[in-house]
Design a protein around this nucleic acid. Structure first.
Length: 452
RNA sequence: GUCCCCGUAGCUCAGUGGAUAGAGCAACCGCCUCCUAAGCGGUAGGUCGCAGGUUCAACUCCCGCCGGGGACACCA
């Protein structure tokens, strides 16, 4: 109690990861379209994990890797150009409505662009659309309370010579070889199921070479641990990423940590919404937030372990918001805030100078004290296991314990009853609970309302 | 074929080898003349997918099946 009330917003923080520099990479979407549901899970969980790791004392840099190089970018550029010129979108191009919108925006911003021809025109379209799309992703993430410290461009890796540097470093470690005219990394030395090509026979660099260079770049920027949050469709990357780290002379068990997130299914109208880019039935982060709000979306996505496939039923979240546990937790916070407001009006003595622990003997009080004391351990565990959902589950339990306490233990004096030491003690207990709920919600990036 | 994730209450899901396996929602029954009923109390609901093994002890670890989802490239 005394600890909580004097530590306030720093209650729960620890030093388990003090001095550890962590690079936390998540989302890393291609800048070729809006962020969709899969990205949204990472946005919520990744952001929360960043907060949790910081709370455990780590020095965390949140990083978004922009895949702004390669075929996908070119297809994207061609698609926007085609839309702007009224031509059919290329066979494997991007189809969505947003392509036409981007085309309009590009034209509005730069009317001269159609005077160009051939390659220069295509490049101009690609670059303009890229900048607009990236800006849009950044805007949407900002509304979702998700912050990045570094937006790392894949191009900058190549332009800065990091790829060659990475190759040199791997060569020096002795795991690079030549075969059939291509340059390979012998990842099978470290558990990968096949060796990987770094440099194709035609001289092109592979995407894998960017990945390895990027990893080496992160390590050279001083990060002890590189956390990758990837979608389930990338699970095959685990072995090669770990093997890459080993090839670079690192300890794959410590220096690299790959988290795989399973897919989110969406139910609406009692049916699963099939998500398909081609059919244009993607649900974007922005749409989800419009439907259920930032708090509900974030909380729902965070409260499950990421390796569990989960189902979000939009009808439930839309129709009857109190079915979402986030409201249960927020309600406890708002309820306490109301009690504290009333206590202030009644001039009830509170604060540590008016706190007598001996007053608290009710089972509910003891239970609440016990729950409050668990918080630092929960935060440390969530950081260590990279599982922010543990915070959410804890908050639900704490809220439940508080609601029970509230039902059985009157906090404020009734009617004209004079305020006693018991009232003051309980008021302090309320203040401590409020603080822990607030700290916990903050770790999840969910608001802690004073009134509901 | 190889690999990854999942299978726990009607539904959505917790449960880091340790007590009678839990929560929310849904169902049923109670509780507001005073601090927020978005709350509280109670009832009902389980062969923890199946079968072996390790252990004093298994929902948890190992092996094999079954069922659901996902992935394999000199694509990005």
């Amino acid at each position: 109690m005394r600890t909580i009330l004097s530590a306030q917003e720093s209650y729960g923080k620890g030093s388990a990861l003090a001095g550890v520099k962590i690079n936390l990479e998540f989302i890393s979407a291609n800048p070729t379209g809006p962020l969709h549901l899969g990205h949204t899970r990472w946005a919520a969980v990744g952001d929360a994990l960043g907060r949790v790791l910081s709370a455990a004392g780590a020095e965390v840099v949140r990083e978004f890797y922009i895949n702004d190089r390669g075929n996908q970018m070119d297809l994207f550029g061609q698609s926007v150009q085609a839309a702007a010129l009224g031509q059919p979108i290329p066979e494997d191009g991007y189809q969505g409505e947003y392509i036409a919108d981007l085309a309009k925006e590009v034209l509005a911003e730069n009317p001269e662009i159609i005077k160009l021809e051939g390659e220069p025109r295509f490049v101009a379209f690609r670059e303009a659309a890229y900048k607009l799309q990236l800006k849009d992703q950044q805007r949407v993430l900002a509304t979702f309370n998700t912050h990045f410290d570094v937006w790392f461009s894949e191009r900058s890796l190549h332009d800065g010579g990091s790829v060659e540097h990475g190759l040199d470093k791997l060569r020096a470690q002795g795991h690079v070889f030549e075969l059939d005219g291509a340059t390979w990394l012998r990842t099978t030395d470290f558990g990968d199921d096949k060796d990987r090509v770094l440099l194709k026979a035609n001289g092109d660099l592979t995407y894998f070479s960017s990945d390895t260079a990027y990893y080496i770049n992160k390590r050279e920027r001083g990060f002890d641990i590189c956390i990758y949050m990837l979608g389930a469709d990338h699970h095959g990357y685990i072995h090669r990423l770990k093997a890459t780290a080993a090839c670079a002379g690192d300890n794959p068990e410590y220096n690299i940590d790959v988290l795989i997130g399973q897919l989110v299914k969406i139910m609406e109208g009692g049916e699963e919404v099939k998500l398909s880019k081609r059919a244009g039935t993607i649900i974007t982060l922005e749409e989800l937030v419009e439907k259920v709000g930032v708090d509900a979306a974030r909380y729902t996505l965070i409260r499950y372990p990421v390796d569990t496939p989960m189902v979000m039923d939009l009808d439930i979240l839309k129709r009857n918001t109190n079915e979402n546990p986030v409201y249960y937790v927020q309600y406890a916070h708002a309820r306490i805030a109301a009690v504290l407001r009333n206590a202030a009006e009644l001039n009830i003595a509170s604060g540590l100078d008016n706190f007598d622990p001996a007053q608290l003997s009710h089972d509910r009080e003891n239970e609440l004290l016990g729950s409050l004391a668990e918080f630092p351990r929960i935060v440390a565990g969530a950081a260590e296991l990279r599982e922010p959902h543990r915070i959410a589950r804890y908050l639900e339990e704490l809220a439940g314990v508080y609601h029970g306490f509230y039902a059985d233990c009157r906090v404020l004096p009734m009617g004209d009853e004079p305020a006693t030491a018991l009232h003051s003690a309980r008021l302090n207990l309320c203040a401590a609970t409020l603080q822990v709920l607030k700290n916990g919600l903050l770790l999840l990036g969910v608001s802690a309302p004073e009134r509901m």
